[in-house]
């Protein structure tokens, strides 16, 4: 049975169902219940944006509030994972990776390799990313390329409520450390989601829409931006194929390459920056492995190489929108050698 629920509800439901299914799943993070030690409600917040609301009353021993101490509790989640728990730790904003990165990239990511394949670290780090909420430079970044570049980590970017639930279930069941990136502007989006539990395998892109003229690879919130652009372009007869990789690590190279071989043109839309980012990575992939299929240079639509600005008109200019995507598609289509 599918119902229409929000991205936030889909994530919450995945957590509830996995905690019910598996007693080794624990949830921890700053204000994940909210109100620990305070005189009022004990499930006051359910996470800063309410994603984990209701979990603590249901699983009082397995939902832990933490001090604002990311190194310690992200590291603790990782340590607990090596000892048989399946912790889902919340790094509130991906921007805060700077205060706990060592535990993620030097510890969790490397245990299995450093220890000769004898470590299993099934930790999930849920984290919010992305601009659009006027949250300024330290609460708005799309830093997942940093994690994507680290061997040993998996990185998921759900683009819809259906994707959010299925990818989070997979993340929790996965035996490798997973960075699960939730776009804060997607929390209130609604979509059809099965009530039953399901896991979407990592490393398989979804083809959001089929079309023969141009491939648009888009990630996370940029998928809906790409769809909006594709709708505009459809009116002028341009058929876009939209590929959502779902995970940047592992990356479904085959689906991207097959699509480009079919369309001959590629635009990558990413909210991460233009340097050493996903767009550059995918452009390089296609240039290296499908050069013969390309009928135009690869187009990329990313924010500029700047911090995320605060003032609304500036932030609106910063985030890629459908108009910019449509323009990039047109320029790829109009390109003449």
């Amino acid at each position: 049975m599918s119902r229409n629920i929000t991205y936030r509800e889909a994530i919450n439901e995945a957590l509830v169902q996995e905690m019910e299914r598996d007693p080794s799943v624990v949830v921890l993070g700053e204000d994940n219940a909210g109100g620990a030690g305070a005189p009022g409600e004990s499930d006051a917040w359910g996470g800063v944006l309410g994603v984990t609301k209701g979990l603590q009353p249901r699983f009082p021993d397995r939902v832990l509030d933490t001090p604002i101490s990311e190194s310690a509790f992200i590291g603790a989640a990782i340590g607990a994972a090596t000892r048989g728990l399946r912790p889902v730790a919340e790094l509130m904003f991906i921007d805060f990776m700077g205060v706990c990165l060592d535990q993620i990239f030097n510890q969790a990511a490397k245990f299995r390799y450093m220890f000769g394949g004898r470590a299993v670290t099934p930790v999930v780090i849920r984290t919010m990313y992305g601009a659009g909420l006027r949250a300024a430079a330290q609460h708005s970044q799309s830093l997942y390329p940093v994690f994507t570049s680290v061997p040993g980590l998996k990185v998921a970017l759900p683009s819809s409520p259906y994707e959010a639930k299925g990818l989070l279930v997979q993340a929790i069941r996965d035996d490798d450390p997973v960075i699960f990136c939730e776009h804060k502007a997607l929390y209130d989006t609604v979509g059809e989601v099965p009530a039953e539990s399901y896991a979407i395998p990592f490393g398989e892109a979804q083809i959001v829409r089929e079309g023969g003229d141009v491939t648009i690879v888009a990630l996370g919130r940029m998928v809906s931006v790409a769809v909006e652009a594709a709708d505009e372009l459809a009116a002028s007869g341009v058929r876009c194929e939209i590929v959502d990789p779902r995970t940047t690590s592992p990356l479904d190279e085959d689906t991207i390459l097959e699509s480009v071989e079919h369309t001959g043109r590629l635009v990558v839309v990413d909210e991460a920056g233009p340097r050493c980012g996903t767009a550059a990575d995918i452009a390089a992939l296609v240039a290296g492995k499908a050069f013969g299929a390309l009928r135009a240079p690869v187009g990329t639509v990313t924010p500029p190489h700047t911090p995320v600005p605060f003032s609304p008109p500036l932030e609106d200019l910063y985030v890629p929108d459908a108009t910019r995507v449509a323009a990039a598609v047109k320029s790829v289509l109009d390109w003449k050698a």
Partner: peptide, 10 residues
């Protein structure tokens, strides 16, 4: 896609 959605269900 519909069949995959079905097949992914627990």
């Amino acid at each position: 896609d519909d069949l995959l959605r079905y097949k992914r269900l627990d």
